[in-house]
């Protein structure tokens, strides 16, 4: 297995506020990870934690302020738009809103053929490629004549997948691929992505806040909080034994579709700190049930132990409960 993507200490800053009182905030605050071909990596975190910004940075849609991004051993964060373009056909992006990311004035056939036109690929015949791609994503050739508004959410998502795989990419970045889809359609889209990944040997980054989705599709996962990874590791392992308190709280909060299920939750104060006023020390300390004096002043390192990386002074043991347990009904 070779690394297709190598992210090192990536930071993204945004300038905010009125002209004279301009301040910069860190949207992504030093993220590193590797992705291997054929691997699915999930990034989990709440809205505003920097997931989408990170995805845009990888794809070159967002400039980074420090760090480096290597795709297939070539450094891409320093490339200009012109030199980035041939690489973009090897990494495609699926944006959040399935219908909104399709032009309402183009038919599905044209939408699927568009990547070929944009990249000037003339040796592929659209009248062959479009039906082939449609059938790959489980749609009949007749869909080529439809407009996006004539598609259901799940069908629009399939068209988005067809566009993303049109140029045979090595990497797909899917931003909330199942958001707004119903559970039955969610399953279809995830099965499709899993299936394509196996058949085409794709690497995939899935950005989501749905933990059930992560559990079923991702090999490895990262939990993001205020623009940083707080825990990275094997998905099964993290679900079995989360080591960062935020991960543990997220997993314990996940609502289950059973009205009688006993709930043993780790309650967190709901106040998420602002990116303009990052807490000192460990940035999770203001919400952490296990907070200790050291956490308030000293930022933890991102420590690797076996297959797991955790940013916490005292990572949790299996089944650890908060000091003052609050059991919610």
């Amino acid at each position: 297995m070779s690394g297709i993507l190598e992210i090192r200490d990536v930071e993204v800053t945004f300038e905010v506020g009125p002209l004279m009182r301009r301040r910069s905030i860190l949207g992504v605050a030093g993220v590193s990870f590797d992705l291997h071909s054929g691997e699915t990596f999930a990034i989990v975190g709440e809205s505003g934690s920097g997931k989408t910004t990170l995805a845009r940075a990888i794809n070159g849609l967002q400039a980074i302020s420090t760090g480096s991004i290597r795709f297939d051993e070539q450094r891409i964060d320093t490339l200009g738009a012109r030199s980035m373009k041939p690489l973009r056909r090897r990494m495609s992006m699926m944006f959040q809103d399935p219908v909104g990311s399709l032009s309402p004035r183009m038919k599905v056939g044209n939408l699927i053929a568009e990547p070929f036109r944009i990249h000037g690929i003339v040796d592929k015949n659209p009248s062959v490629e479009v039906p082939r791609l449609l059938s790959l994503v489980g749609l009949t050739p007749e869909f080529a004549d439809r407009y996006p508004h004539q598609l259901s959410g799940g069908q629009a998502r399939r068209v988005g997948v067809a566009r993303a795989i049109a140029l045979n990419p090595d990497l797909i970045i899917a931003d909330e691929p199942t958001a707004g889809l119903d559970v039955s359609v969610q399953g279809e889209v995830l099965n499709l992505l899993n299936d394509l990944r196996e058949r085409l040997g794709l690497a995939m980054i899935i950005i989501t806040h749905n933990l059930h989705v992560v559990h079923h599709v991702a090999d490895r996962m990262a939990v993001m909080y205020l623009g940083r990874f707080v825990e990275v590791g094997d998905t099964d392992e993290i679900f079995r034994a989360p080591r960062h308190p935020y991960t543990a709280a997220l997993l314990s909060a996940n609502p289950e579709p059973d009205p009688d299920k006993a709930r043993d939750r780790i309650a967190l104060p709901a106040e998420v700190p602002s990116l303009l006023a990052r807490p000192a020390g460990c940035e999770f300390h203001s919400r952490c049930p296990w907070v200790a004096a050291r956490c308030k002043s000293e930022a933890p390192d991102f420590v690797q132990s076996e297959t797991r990386k955790v940013a916490c002074h005292t990572p949790l043991e299996l089944g650890a409960r908060p000091p003052e347990m609050e059991v919610t009904q």
Binding site: E46, S47, A179, G180, H209, A249, L251, N254, A267, T328
Partner: peptide
């Protein structure tokens, strides 16, 4: 609660 993460979702429904 659709736009919120799991911890905030649970806090909101509670």
């Amino acid at each position: 609660t659709t736009a919120l993460d799991a911890t905030l979702e649970v806090a909101t429904i509670e």
